[in-house]
């Protein structure tokens, strides 16, 4: 079976006063219908990689790739108008912050319905039912009430669940989740990830989970890419993360406090050891 997404030598460039900067520098990977995690610190280019798959990088930024194929479609040749038929329907993205990503003047139910209406023709009754069942599947207890609320009336955690509902309702083939749970607390975090996980497995979707939390990524993904300053440092199977070789990955793992913490100080990354050009 051909892979769902093939990317070779992806480069995202932004011009600066001191010359162009490659914020993503030669990243290559293929994705089947599986769960891929991308981890790295802020500024490592992981979100830019996610956005460039949807061609959401605005000018003056430019995206280049030697090979950029999604489900047999060559995205290098796709125009903006053609991309719009893919976004949401085939590839969708859960953004980082529900506060800025939801429309503040539209109630939650209408926003979710809009995501579906853009890509499918449905009558009003089945639209309502789809929205309510989607809200239920992201564990919102009282969907009829919540659907009438506006984004400022719901908590951050609920906002993020609404976002996930909105992104999953058109049943895309590939879901890009950019820090989907960083605004949520642990008990809800695992619920939300379980929801994503179930849907991905049940519908045979591909998932790209972008996060800075190594443990979280390793427990929800099959493979992990580690990124730093735009480059891919390491690729490993999720179960093998503890045996990661690169000093950066090992540093990140060690910097995390554990539940049975008895160290007096946490080791801090020594950035000089690998960032030398």
């Amino acid at each position: 079976m051909a892979p769902l997404l093939e990317i070779e030598n992806l480069t995202v460039t932004f011009p600066t006063p001191s010359g162009p900067v490659n914020v993503v520098d030669g990243v290559s990977f293929t994705l089947n219908r599986e769960r891929l995690g991308i981890v790295g610190e802020s500024g490592s280019g992981k979100s830019m990689t996610g956005r460039s798959i949807l061609k959401l990088i605005r000018a003056p930024g430019t995206v280049k790739a030697d090979r950029f194929v999604f489900d047999g479609l060559d995205l290098n040749k796709y125009s903006e108008r053609q991309m719009r038929t893919l976004r949401g329907a085939r590839i969708s993205m859960v953004m980082q912050d529900p506060k800025f990503s939801l429309n503040p003047v539209m109630n939650v139910g209408t926003q979710i319905a809009e995501a579906l209406k853009t890509h499918q023709k449905l009558n009003r009754k089945s639209l309502r039912e789809r929205v309510f069942s989607m809200l239920e599947s992201v564990r919102i207890d009282d969907p009829e009430r919540v659907a009438r609320l506006f984004p400022h009336e719901i908590s951050g955690g609920m906002g993020q669940r609404v976002m996930i509902a909105m992104m999953l309702i058109p049943e895309p083939d590939l879901l890009i989740a950019d820090e989907p749970t960083s605004a949520l607390d642990v008990s809800v975090q695992s619920q939300v990830l379980d929801i994503i996980d179930n849907l991905v497995t049940a519908k045979g979707m591909g998932l790209i989970l972008i996060s800075h939390d190594l443990n979280l990524v390793s427990s929800y993904c099959d493979r992990i890419l580690v990124m730093n300053s735009g480059r891919m440092l390491e690729e490993c199977a999720a179960g093998q993360l503890q045996n990661a070789e690169h000093p950066y990955t090992r540093g990140l793992l060690a910097a995390m406090p554990r539940l049975d913490e008895n160290r007096d100080l946490l080791p801090v990354l020594d950035r000089a050891s690998w960032s030398a050009p």
Binding site: V186, S187, Q189, S190, L214, N215, L216, S218, S219, Y220, A238, G239, Q240, L241, Q242, R258, L259
Partner: peptide, 16 residues
Amino acid sequence: ELLRASASHLISAENP
């Protein structure tokens, strides 16, 4: 419950 929720992904990462 809270402890299990936060431990679930920590433990699974440490003991694959």
